[in-house]
């Protein structure tokens, strides 16, 4: 464990909690892409199946349980509890265009052609593009609530910090996992446009609105 990975995990946890509280307190999921949240629930489910078979550490197991629990709670609130506030018209990204190629890629490019390894690889690839429906929805509505931008900032920051974690682990442990690194870099690049808007607008107290 190193400082980049710890702050990355905490940033990820913060993002998940921010979103959950935003929906719960405002009793609304307006502006939130339910499709992205379903993809994240799939990412955690396919990646954390080893919860049942391998004990790495209390931290590792607790965080996995929290991530999975919050992901499904968020999906439940979007599609069940507060479904009246779900903006399905703007959440129109075709996720099959993500899941199918990612599934094919996971079967073709992986570290080991085993069931668990392919599932893990699938979850890594899927996570790198899972935010696209959310970013697409913001581009369609042309705006995002400030709390939603804080959620996205923490979510983008988590994988950016993981990149520093991989650099750290390469130099101090000689460990590197090319699949996780390439997917993590792609994932972080997808946020760059948003990071620019967040820094130049939201941090200056303006609302995030895109030229429609």
């Amino acid at each position: 464990m190193n400082i980049f990975r710890l702050t990355g995990d905490l940033s990820h946890l913060a993002a998940i909690i921010i979103l959950l509280l935003k929906i719960w307190k405002s009793r609304s999921c307006a502006g939130i892409s339910g499709k992205s949240q379903i993809l994240f629930a799939i990412v955690f489910t396919t990646r954390y199946l080893d919860l049942l078979s391998t004990f790495i550490s209390l931290y590792n197991s607790c965080m996995k349980v929290i991530y999975i629990g919050c992901a499904y709670a968020t999906v439940y609130m979007i599609y069940m509890k507060f479904r009246a506030t779900y903006d399905g018209n703007h959440d129109s990204f075709r996720v099959e265009f993500l899941v199918v190629p990612v599934g094919g890629l996971a079967v073709l490019i992986n570290h080991d052609f085993s069931f668990m390894e392919i599932l893990w690889t699938f979850s890594i690839y899927l996570e790198s593009v899972a935010i696209l429906p959310q970013l697409f929805m913001i581009s369609k509505t042309g705006e995002a609530e400030t709390i939603t931008t804080h959620y996205l900032f923490c979510l983008g920051l988590y994988r950016a910090l993981y990149i520093f974690n991989w650099v750290w682990r390469f130099y101090f442990e000689g460990f590197f996992d090319l699949i996780a690194i390439v997917a993590g870099v792609v994932q972080t690049i997808l946020y760059c446009d948003f990071f620019y808007l967040y820094v130049t607008k939201v941090l200056k107290g303006k609302k995030l609105s895109l030229p429609a």
Binding site: I56, S57, H111, D112
Partner: peptide, 10 residues
């Protein structure tokens, strides 16, 4: 490639 990738990252 069957390196032992320890999956200790979240």
């Amino acid at each position: 490639m069957d390196e032992d990738f320890d999956k200790d990252e979240l």
